[in-house]
Design a protein around this nucleic acid. Sequence first.
DNA 1: CTACTTTTAGTACCTGGTATTAATAGTAAG
DNA 2: CTTACTATTAATACCAGGTACTAAAAGTAG
Lengths: 189, 189
Amino acid sequence: MARLTLPKKARQKALLERLKADPFLTDEELSDIFHVSVQTIRLDRLELGIPELRERIKSVAERNYEKIRAIGGPEIVGELIELELGKSGISMLTATEDMVFQKTKIVRGQYIYAQAESLAIAVIDAKVALIGVANIKYKIPVYLGDKLVAKAEVVRRRGNKYFVWVKTKVNYQEAFRGKFILVSMDDGQ
Amino acid sequence: MARLTLPKKARQKALLERLKADPFLTDEELSDIFHVSVQTIRLDRLELGIPELRERIKSVAERNYEKIRAIGGPEIVGELIELELGKSGISMLTATEDMVFQKTKIVRGQYIYAQAESLAIAVIDAKVALIGVANIKYKIPVYLGDKLVAKAEVVRRRGNKYFVWVKTKVNYQEAFRGKFILVSMDDGQ
DNA sequence: CTACTTTTAGTACCTGGTATTAATAGTAAG
DNA sequence: CTTACTATTAATACCAGGTACTAAAAGTAG
């Protein structure tokens, strides 16, 4: 990709992108890629405030250590702020880089949905299964960095069936709403 | 936790567990924890085949780097099997450990939803935004290891609004269905 | 030609190790 | 008590991938 020796500014820009794509490159490997000396690479990193390889690796490891827990690990997506079991709950989620479309920086619906669904399940204090969702609406787009505040309310209970409304707001504006229908499995299958 | 100096075997066992819980500890920190010299820790690691700190960090970083890409990276959740732009598409997703509830091994709805939503967006060949979803139903639970085959079909188009039905089957049985309403943003806005 | 930026080179030093050799401490058996 | 053996610790040379700093060389514009 970087065939010729680029001028300083262009090289530094390319360096940034290159390391974002692959943070596992040593200065020596980078000096090969950009056809400059190792010292030049170091100088570039210094000017750009890019830490050394080991620090980069470490931060990737740490960041992802948390992230894996944030996505796959916990029972709930986002941070639980308030919870009244069987009645209502509030959770907050900050939209990070990996949740958005690269081009538009708009958060993918699946994350907004995941926050809402997991909150709906959390407010029902029992082994539940989601059996249906109705009338989901995405009202305004959510962008990178936005804070999603989801509020769930159990609106009706019929036997072991629960109806939970979840409304998500961004900057006090409703961005998402949906009705979740859950069934408790505590007794009888 | 480890108050006294443990005998060799016990210490090595504790060391293994300790590093599994926190791989970011240097030999020096470990020697403090277990009240032995740095050399003893090194000897233990050698005998147990535990790599050095940097290698541990690196492998954590690499392992998780892939996982992040698998979840947040690509435009589509699951593997695209068939695609007729503007008409229909099929994608497949195998339910892995991190998609299920620990206790029940049932796949969280959010993953099934994510596969469906991303497929719905993929079949529309334009910059689209999801504005609404209707009538989502989860018919049968999906378990760890199951193969989810999602089929999307554009059922109607009205101006820049698209209506896409997505049905997901597991073992030829319908497990999920939902209608996605998308709006194209190519011209206007 | 001069002034200034950019690049490269060189050196001392750092962390967190590996690899190896050797000394020391602890303990059980004869 | 001495011997034998294991476990522990110490010491030293070396390595990768750097930081921090100084200085020389090359490139470029006025």
